[in-house]
Structures are given as C-alpha cells and as structure tokens.
Amino acid sequence: MTLLAHERYCDEISHQVDQLRALVTSAADLSATVPTCPDWSLERLVRHMGGALRWAAALVRTRAQEHLPTEQVPLGGGPEAQGDAAALDAWLAETGELVVGALREAGPDAKVWSWTGAATSGFWARRMACEITIHRADAALTVGAPYEVAPDIAADALDEWLQLVEWVQRSGAREWAEKLRGPGRSIHLHATDTAPELNAEWFVELGEDGVGWRRGHEKATVALRGPLTPVLLAFYRRLPLDTPGLEILGEREVLESWLKHTTFG
C-alpha cells in the first residue's frame, strides 16, 4: 500500500476546510442534530473537527514528543460566541491556515508524537485529511447537501481505517477488537465506478489471529459493492447498507457484525 504525497494531504485538508465552511455558512440551523452522530449538533461537530485540526497543528508546530492536553491548544474549543455562523466560519478559516501551514513547514518526516507507532508529521497530515473527509460527510448529511470526495482520498480513507482497526487489535486499545476474532470470515469491498489503476477493492480477513487486509479482488464471505463514495460512507457507518446503489452479496450478518464493533466512539 502506497501513501499519497504529503502535499496531497495538505491540499485536501485545505479543500475540506473550505467545503465545511460553506456548509456552516449555508446552514439554516447550527443546533440541528447530526444524524450520524446523534449526540452532537452541527455546531458541536464543527467545533470538534476544528479543535482536532488545531490540536494536530499544535503538535506538529511544536514537534511535540508526548501527548498535548487539548486545553493547552489556543481556541481549541472554538469561538466564544455560540450559534454565530460568521464567527464559526472565521475560526475555521484560521484553523485551516494554521494546520496546513504547520504541516507544510514540517514536511512528512518530522518527529511528532502520535498515539500509534507512526510518530511523524506525515501521520497527522493523513489522519486529519481522513478525519475531516468523514466529518464533512456528517455535516453534509445534516444539512441535506450533496457529498462527493476525490477517489484517491476516498480509497486512502478506507486504507487508513483498516490500518487503524489493525492497530487497535494489536494494541488492545479497545475491547471491541477481540470480537472481530473467530472462525474464518471475510469481507470484500468493491468500488464499481473507479479506474482500474486505482485498484479500489479490498479483501478483509477476520480470523482467529485477528484482522488482516489487502487490496484486490477475492471471493469473500460477504461483499459490499457500489460507487466508491457510498461504499466509503457505508463502511464508516455514515450511510445505511440499504442505500440505493449499494449491493450486498453473501452473508450480510458478517458485514453487520463488523460495522457494529468497529468504532472509536
């Protein structure tokens, strides 16, 4: 598996921040409940995402070698004014400039603490690009706006999610990871609308030894097929499996079990 270029992640963070800002300024109600994160309002979602970006920016800018408490991040919680779309938009704009500037100045190889073994600024560029890609989908679903994402970013977000699940299982960071072990089962994800060179297919094995995965077309216990963006959002539990355009072949309960247990919430 090959990572995208560091500058590609930086560009995507900047693009996604702009897209999220557009949703904020066009939203009729910042207090609307986010359907995919029902404990959050749209404003709470945006403050969470902006806070994560500012935290990552602070880590990278200071070359932190240990965890940085979020309360030490200036304006990490967002603007003081509540329910003010203009203030939230201005805060997001500044946030995007801070994080992208820090990442570009650092380059991909600067040593920076992370909660996985990948302790570099490059880890944070990729993590924040994937994080905002999914949370912008949450915001778009909240306001009923269309959502699309570039194929290379969507495919990389699926790669990263599978890597994070592997890390969780190796590290024992979440109890749910043990529930993914068991007799040989497998999941095949198949994007039907991408160029062959992207190789937008994934084979995920769930065995007694844990989770393993690779890109490619292989017969599995269950397959999820459809356009790449809906496949991405369904695998991140942002769209229901019965979304028009998605197709499930094989033992649906294997996929449902995966979706039930793989969460950082």
Results as ranks from 00 to 15, higher is better:
Pro230Tyr: 05
Val100Ala: 13
Pro227Ser: 05
Gly96Phe: 09
Gly122Gln: 13
Met1Gln: 12
Trp115Val: 09
Leu92Phe: 14
His6Lys: 13
Leu45His: 05
Glu175Met: 10
Arg170Phe: 03
Gly50Asp: 07
Leu239Thr: 02
Phe264Leu: 05
Val73Trp: 07
Leu249Lys: 11
Glu256Gly: 01
Ala137Asp: 03
Glu43Arg: 14
Val100Gln: 14
Gly78Tyr: 03
Leu141Trp: 09
Cys37Asn: 02
Ala106Phe: 12
His135Asn: 01
Gly265Asn: 08
Thr62Met: 02
Asp84Trp: 04
Thr262Phe: 07
Gly107Tyr: 13
Leu241Asn: 05
Arg126Pro: 12
Trp124Asn: 13
Leu141His: 13
Trp176Leu: 07
Thr70Cys: 03
Glu205Tyr: 01
Pro230Asp: 11
Val222Asp: 10
Thr229Gly: 00
Ala220Met: 10
Ala32Arg: 12
Gln65Leu: 02
His48Asp: 03
Gln82Arg: 14
Ile248Trp: 00
His6Leu: 12
Gly226Arg: 04
Gly107Trp: 12
Glu175Pro: 05
Ser26Met: 01
Glu197Leu: 13
Ala145Glu: 11
Ala173His: 06
Gly250Glu: 04
Ala234His: 00
Leu224Arg: 01
Pro227Ile: 06
Ser121Gly: 11
Arg136Asp: 01
Leu4Phe: 04
Glu160Lys: 02
Ala90Pro: 11
Gly144His: 06
Gly212Leu: 00
Gly50Gln: 00
Arg181Thr: 14
Arg127Val: 06
Gly51His: 04
Ser186Gln: 05
Pro227Met: 06
Asp156Thr: 08
Glu105Thr: 14
Asp89Met: 05
Glu256Trp: 09
Gly101Met: 06
His67Ala: 11
Gly96Trp: 12
Val73Ile: 15
Arg185His: 08
Val231Gly: 00
Thr120Met: 14
Leu92Ile: 06
Ile132Gly: 09
His190Asn: 14
Asp11Leu: 03
Gly76Asn: 02
Cys37Gln: 02
Ala5Tyr: 03
Pro146Val: 06
Leu249Cys: 08
Ser14Gly: 15
Glu197Asp: 15
Leu30Arg: 05
Met1His: 13
Asp109Ser: 14
Val165Ala: 11
Leu164Cys: 02
Glu7Trp: 09
Ser186Phe: 05
Gly226Tyr: 11
Leu20Thr: 00
Gly226Trp: 11
Gly216Asn: 11
Ile134Phe: 15
Glu197Gln: 15
Leu246Met: 08
Ser114His: 04
Leu224Trp: 03
Pro151Ala: 10
Thr142Ile: 04
Leu42Phe: 07
Leu42Arg: 06
Asp89Pro: 10
Ser186Asp: 07
Gly226Ser: 07
Glu97His: 13
Trp176Met: 10
Glu7Ile: 10
Glu94Met: 00
Gly51Ile: 05
Pro79Leu: 07
Leu241Glu: 02
Pro183Glu: 15
Arg174Gly: 09
Glu7Arg: 13
Ile187Trp: 04
Gly122His: 15
Val211Gln: 05
Asp18Tyr: 08
Trp161His: 14
Ala150Trp: 06
Gln65Phe: 00
Tyr147Asp: 04
Asp152Phe: 15
Val24His: 11
Val204Glu: 05
Leu228Thr: 14
Thr229Gln: 00
Val24Leu: 14
Leu20Lys: 00
Ala223Lys: 10
Ala22Ser: 04
